Simulated assay, not measured.
Amino acid sequence: MSAIYLASQSPRRRELLSQLGIEFVQFSVDADETPFENESARQLVERLARLKAETGVAMGYEDRPVLGSDTVVVYDNHIMGKPTDFEDFQRMMKQLSGRTHQVLTAIALSSTHKTMSKVVTTDVTFKPLSDDEITAYWHTQEPLDKAGGYGIQGRAGAFVTHLSGSYFAVMGLPLYETQELIAEFNNEL
Rank of each mutant, 00 (worst) to 15 (best):
V73K: 06
D63F: 09
I22S: 12
H78A: 13
T135E: 15
P143K: 03
E184Y: 12
P174M: 04
I107S: 01
I152Q: 05
E33G: 05
P128N: 01
L173E: 05
A147K: 09
T112S: 13
L67N: 00
T161R: 09
M171D: 06
L104S: 01
V119K: 08
V103S: 00
I79G: 07
D123K: 12
S117C: 06
V103T: 05
I4Q: 08
R99C: 07
A147T: 04
M171Y: 07
P65I: 04
E177R: 11
N187K: 14
Y75P: 03
E133D: 10
M1V: 12
D131C: 10
R155G: 15
V66T: 08
A41Y: 11
V66G: 07
A158D: 12
V170C: 00
T122D: 05
L189G: 14
A169T: 06
L181P: 01
R42S: 15
L17M: 11
T178F: 03
M116P: 03
P65R: 03
A7F: 03
L48P: 12
K127R: 14
T122H: 00
L67R: 01
T122W: 06
S2L: 11
M1K: 11
A106C: 09
D32G: 09
D32Y: 10
A41P: 15
G151D: 05
S117H: 10
I79R: 08
G149W: 03
M80G: 06
H78S: 14
D132H: 11
Y5M: 03
V170Q: 00
G165T: 00
T115E: 10
M93Y: 10
V74L: 07
A136W: 04
L96N: 04
G60S: 14
G68V: 02
L16H: 08
A147I: 05
